[in-house]
Design a protein around this nucleic acid. Structure first.
Lengths: 341, 341
DNA sequence: CCGCAAGTGCAAATCGTTTGGCACGTTTCC
DNA sequence: GGAAACGTGCCAAACGATTTGCACTTGCGG
């Protein structure tokens, strides 16, 4: 199996369908048909053609194919930053989800800049991708810039995309936060604080926290709600403010894990025990949640599944199985209990 | 600026160069020339054409362009798993590196399976990418399967790729390990152990450790070298073996950070102080290195720069600026001193 | 006044596929 | 025996750009 294939392959020129046709003594049409199976081909001819293909090591040129068929079997995923584990995992889920159907993934990092976002969107449409998943939406009403222009399906992750035809997949932050807070309540915490995200975003997590408190018959003390900014440092600052209160909380729900890790930092500084003095719950279940000590109880943000179902929604549209109004799928966020609460 | 562009764009059909030519009253050739600037075009005609382009919202079809020019302005990066922070960062570096030149990145996850590796390699070549970076090589001699077949440039990351024309970029593990070990020596450690990787790989890190020891006039005790498997759990097991020794080491160099984190786990269990009882150095400088306590002294593995220079090597070949034998660039791995040593 | 070069535009070939329509031969069925 | 149906193959027209070669003006020097 070493003889012909590699040696015969010249470095520069790919073999075309015409050459195969010549060698097999048939027309390119016929070769195409044995390849695609779209039309009957006699057993004998089919054999000859396949032999010719094997012998020449023919591989169809996908660019030409895309031009003709107007489908590239590529999807684009535009994310703020592939370096962020959440988006990396999401991308992996998407890639796995569409891989079975023979689709590949093209990634774009926007750094959250809506300008780059638009640039990339245009770029990938020009490149002829069959679908795009936008995980980098700044909620700007994009209905004007034509999201699914050219009829390319778009599914949006997390944010809202104001367009009748785009699907949306998001995590159920509200329910997850509710579960986290309720868990703290059931553990016997009496003063449960929350370190929120910045004011523009993440209100669903706030809502879950509030609902858990009120449905347990407790009010929610505004002094126990302070803002972070999703970062570890922000978590530290917020936690310090909380600990400076006349009466300290005995549990803190943090809007994400990084924030919680910041909170852990100051608890360690202060020599307080987790969860005995203060219990802690995070959100996202990043890798670091198991590395920190004590291991962080948190809410799992289903990044992989998000990417995977985004892929499925996309596929159903790309294959023409579904052509309707935008669908919305909400994924559950299970609480994962470790040692911090 | 809301009037024409979006409203005129029908959802299904893109506008072609021919339509622009019609509207401007010129030939497609001329439109192409004003776009590419490859030939002089009279100022007046140029104006008319540009106006027509603007008015129709024309965007060139990249697939057609690729077919004709045989360049797609896409590179592929094939990695074991984009979920692994190292490869995520590497990918980001690559994407940033080629972005300036208008190239985009297509990613493939092989899970380290050389079968998938080959499948993807063929797939991306069929897709007509202009270059590929392989970060997932199992050292198998691939010269037979034609790495840079079809004349597509390939650059390889980390592993070795036995082909005269492929470039290689790798981190200087040996020097990094040497620096790490020397740092432990200078701190006054007398019995310095190492938790290695599994036997098949990573010998450069072992070498650096050994060289530091011998060049400091010390022998290296084989009992102080135990094997892990790159994981946290493996690190724990290896560390336990080390601590069961009749005379314990007073410092441990771990072949990667995860291993070091495992080592930290058992030190905490044993109630030993880091670095006072035992000093610890890792390798890679993953995010978790700053999260663990105490913050881990480690050797930075320059993932981003690796991807970026891989991109540059690729670019120089894709643009035809370089066409020669395979180049090799080795990137330094600086020691980053934190608190664990 | 001829010739040559530079400036400007277009027609047509090309890239490598897919696919609708036609043609021909063979059955099958009234 | 003729019509309808099918099986099998090829021709040629797309797909949407780029690029080669040619044609026609001008301007200018000799």
């Amino acid at each position: 199996m070493v003889e012909d294939g590699s040696a015969a392959t010249v470095d520069k020129d790919r073999v075309t369908i015409a050459q195969v046709a010549d060698l097999a003594g048939v027309s390119p049409t016929t070769v195409s048909h044995v390849l695609s199976g779209k039309r009957l081909v006699g057993a004998a001819t089919k054999g000859t053609v396949q032999e010719a293909i094997r012998q020449l090591g023919y591989r169809p040129n996908n660019v030409a194919r895309s031009l003709r068929t107007n489908r590239s079997r590529m999807v684009a995923v535009v994310v703020p930053d592939i370096t962020n584990p959440f988006y990396a995992v999401l991308t992996r889920g998407l890639a796995d989800g569409v891989d079975k159907a023979g689709y590949g993934a093209y990634v774009c990092n926007t750094d959250g800049l809506s300008e780059r976002e638009n640039t990339f969107l245009e770029d990938v449409l020009d490149r002829g991708v069959d679908g795009v998943v936008m995980a980098s939406v700044d909620s700007a009403d994009r209905s004007s810039t034509g999201p699914s222009a050219y009829g390319t399906p778009v599914v949006c992750v997390g944010g809202a995309f104001n367009h009748p035809q785009v699907d949306l997949v998001a995590a159920d932050d509200e329910v997850g936060s509710h579960a986290a807070t309720r868990h703290l309540i059931q553990r016997g915490a009496t003063r449960i604080a929350m370190i929120q995200g910045p004011s523009e975003s993440g209100t669903a997590r706030d809502d879950g926290y509030r609902r858990a408190l009120t449905s347990a018959g407790r009010g929610c003390d505004p002094r126990l709600m302070v803002r972070g900014n999703w970062t570890r440092k922000g978590g530290r600052q917020a936690m310090r403010r909380l600990m400076a209160l006349p009466t300290r909380p005995d549990a803190v729900f943090c809007a994400n894990d990084l924030t919680a890790i910041g909170a852990i930092d100051v608890l360690h500084e202060l020599g307080l025990a987790i969860p005995d003095d203060i219990a802690l719950v995070g959100f996202d279940d990043v890798d670091a949640a198991t590395i920190v000590s004590p291991p962080l109880t948190t809410v799992r943000n289903p990044a992989y599944e998000t990417g995977e179902t985004a892929g499925q929604l996309l596929l159903s549209r790309m294959l023409g199985e579904y052509t309707g109004a935008g669908r919305t799928v909400i994924l559950p966020c299970p609480l994962v209990v470790r040692e911090s609460a």
